[in-house]
Simulated assay, not measured.
Amino acid sequence: MDRLPNPAWLRSFESAARHLNFTTTARELGLTQTAVSLHIRSLEAELGQKLFTRNARRLELTELGQSYSLTVRRALADIALSTNSLFGPASRQTLTIRAAISTATYWIAAELPDFTAQHPDIPVRLISHIWNDSVAPADVDVEIRLGYGDWPGVRAEKLTDEYLVPVCRADNGSADLSGLPKSPLIHILGYEDNWTRYFQANGITATHQPPQHSVDTSVAALQLVMAGAGYATMLERFARNAIRQGAPLDIAGPAIPFAQSHYLISAQGAAHPSAAAGLFCAWLRDRLASDAAG
C-alpha cells in the first residue's frame, strides 16, 4: 500500500487547518490540546515538512500545509459521504446555529422551544459571539447576523425589519422623553450613535455628556438597566422578548426604525443546507411572518 500517515494525525491536521487554533481543534475532536499538538508534530516529522508557522498569537499554514489541507479535507469528506451513502447518516444529527450573543439570548433562544416542539428529533446547539468578525470560520448549519447585508464572500437573505426603543427598569415608570438626555444613559460599544439617532427622530435636543456606563452587548446593558443604572436603547424585538420572559423592564418611548436588519448567512458557492437547516430556516421565516401579521 502507498504511504499513508496515521489517520488520527490527518484528522487533527484537517481540523487545525480550518480553525488555525489547537484549543478549538481539541474541543471539536474531544481531545486535549497536548494531544492535538503531538499529532501535528508527528505528522510533520513523518512528512519531513512544516505544515504550520507558529506565531505568538495564532497559527498560519505554510504553502505546503495549505495545499495538503485541501487534499486531506477532500479525502475525509469523500469518506464521510461514502459512509453516509452506504450506511445512512447519524440518526440524530445536531443542528448548529450561530448568532450574535444578544440575538441568541433575546430572540433565538426565546423562540427555540416552539421549533423543538415541532421537530423533537432535531437536537439544537446554539453558539454565540459578540462581533461578526470575532469568530474564526466554524462548522455551523445556520448563521444569523445583524447588519446591513453587505458582508463580502457570503449570501445574505434579509429576514427582518428592526426598530429601536429605549428601555428602563419597570419601577421607574414612563419616562418624559424630553428629560431623557439628562438621565443616565447606557451606551453599547459599536452602537454609540443610537441615542443620538433616537433623540433626532423624536425632535429632542440632546446634550453631549460622556456616558457613565459603556458595555459591549445588549445583554450587559439590560443587566445595568435592571440594576437601576439608567436607560439603554435596544431592538424592540429583544426588549419585548425579555419582558415576556419576566425581565423587570419597561419600554420607555416610541419605537423608531433601525437601519440594520437580521439576515440568514450562507457562504457563496456553499452546498445545499442540510435537511435540518432547511426545516429551521422555513420555521424561522414562518414565525417572522406570523409576528408581522400579528
Rank of each mutant, 00 (worst) to 15 (best):
D2C: 00
R3D: 11
N6H: 09
L10M: 07
E14L: 03
R18K: 14
L20Q: 14
F22Y: 13
T24L: 14
T34N: 13
L43S: 05
L43D: 03
A45M: 10
E46T: 12
E46V: 06
E46S: 13
L47G: 10
L47H: 08
G48P: 09
K50Q: 13
F52R: 07
E60S: 15
S69T: 06
R73N: 10
R73P: 00
A75T: 12
L76E: 06
A80N: 07
L86I: 12
S91I: 06
R92M: 02
T96H: 03
T96D: 00
R98V: 10
A104S: 15
W107T: 14
L112N: 09
T116K: 13
D121I: 00
R125T: 07
I127C: 03
I127V: 15
S128D: 14
P137S: 06
D139P: 05
V140P: 00
E143D: 08
Y148N: 13
G149T: 01
W151F: 11
G153D: 11
R155L: 12
A156I: 02
E157T: 15
E157G: 03
P166M: 09
V167M: 10
C168I: 11
S174G: 04
S174Y: 07
G179A: 14
S183M: 15
I188H: 02
G190Y: 03
G190P: 04
E192S: 11
W195H: 13
A201V: 02
T207R: 12
P211H: 04
S218I: 01
M226Q: 15
M226P: 03
G230L: 07
M234D: 04
L235M: 13
L235P: 05
E236T: 02
R237L: 15
R237Q: 13
R237D: 08
F238D: 09
R244V: 05
G246E: 05
P254Q: 10
I256V: 15
P257G: 04
P257V: 06
Y263C: 08
G269L: 09
L279D: 03
L284W: 11
L284N: 02
R287Q: 14
L288E: 07
L288Y: 09
S290A: 15
A293F: 08
G294S: 08
